[in-house]
Design a binder for these strands. Structure first.
Lengths: 206, 206
DNA sequence: CGCCGGAATGAACCTTGGTTCATTCTTTCT
DNA sequence: AGAAAGAATGAACCAAGGTTCATTCCGGCG
């Protein structure tokens, strides 16, 4: 029946869309935004250049969707951790661990999503992700302050500091080269988590 | 005499070089690397496009020199503060204050120097600046650990965290919009400094 | 005064990478 | 099977921006 056939067709359509999106995301994960040229994307998805434009009106929208999809997934996980309840200091460490360990499994992608600028149209989506990321930590911090576990600190500034700290130490260009062992990675994550924890619960009177 | 004339001529040469360099740097300070197009630079320096190429072989080398000159100045100041002696926790705060207050007076430039990627050839100079910046803080941290003021922390990771923290909170795209008053700026700097101080001297046992 | 060499000019060139579209191939329906 | 609709193709097009170079300008020297 026509009904069935339409469904199959639209399924195939969605599949191809997803395939192209995945190809583009993989390219970004390998070489950052610069590697995601339309010709490359098409080649990686086994599709002609023009075909990509059947599914997205422009490169900017394709890139925006990459950010949006990655962002949705990561924020979902992070939010779940942040809202799980329990002592704020443990929540904070858990959140950092969750985010960091995932970021380590794709540093280049994480860097591209959080830090690497792109063209203006994509940038706003990226900044939004970043802001929501910070907001997650801000909520944890507010919890801690309300319960008196954390000292009086400006949670907005502190949240930005936390995001910046692990961004720089974990996925930034200054971070230890890719390919260091799992042991080194674990050390790094723990060290960052401790840094942020101290910054959040410490006294701060020299 | 010929001697005098040669000297005058080369002085004029150096002057023009400096003028172009300053023009380019100002453009970066206003609109980041994207604003530093050769046509723009030439126009801002009241010079024809081709003239720029009499003084630098390529855009990359011009940009590299911008980074190098800014970097030298800032690192000089920061190093002086870091090596001045005194209690490490005070030194740390002083260093952050010194760097941050200067960065505030030219956020866009600071962001371009520390965070915004450029083409590969310039990038290496920029990363070097960043590394030296982190190294400055690392030295302060080591001092503190040796003297037993700071807990056992990995100074390399912690230094990266510090750089990342103020980068993000102070000059990053998430930072409060430009033009907030001097009072807000001061609050921001102090809040960042306290964050880093707590992270450095805190106990870190939840 | 007329010539000469170096500096300045800026329009033209070239490369890179996003976008388009006339053509070809596939699938579906009769 | 044959035609119509939809999807795919990839070479050509276009814009942006860095670089070049034939030409012009200018100050000093014989």
């Amino acid at each position: 029946m026509a009904y069935r056939r339409t469904e199959v067709a639209s399924q195939r359509l969605a599949d191809k869309r997803a395939r192209i999106l995945r190809a583009a995301r993989d390219l970004v994960a390998e070489g950052g935004w610069a590697a995601a040229q339309m010709d490359n994307v098409a080649a990686k998805a086994d599709v002609a250049t023009g075909t990509v434009y059947r599914y997205w009106p422009s490169k900017a929208e394709l890139c925006a969707e990459i950010v949006a999809s990655v962002s949705e997934r990561e924020l979902g996980i992070l939010t779940a951790v942040a809202d799980a309840g329990g002592p704020p200091s443990e929540t904070l460490v858990a959140a950092i661990r969750a985010f960091a360990s995932r970021a380590l499994r794709g540093r280049r992608l994480a860097y591209a999503m959080i830090a690497e600028p792109v063209d203006p149209e994509v940038e706003s989506v990226r900044l939004d992700y970043r802001a929501q990321l910070a907001h997650c930590f801000e909520r944890i911090l507010r919890q801690g302050i309300m319960r008196g576990v954390f000292p009086r600190l400006d949670p907005t500034v502190a949240a930005a500091c936390i995001v910046g700290a692990f961004m720089e130490a974990l996925v930034g260009p200054l971070a230890p080269a890719r390919g260091t062992g799992a042991r080194a990675d674990r050390h790094l994550v723990e060290e960052i988590a401790r840094f942020c924890l101290r910054a959040s619960i410490g006294e701060g009177k020299p």
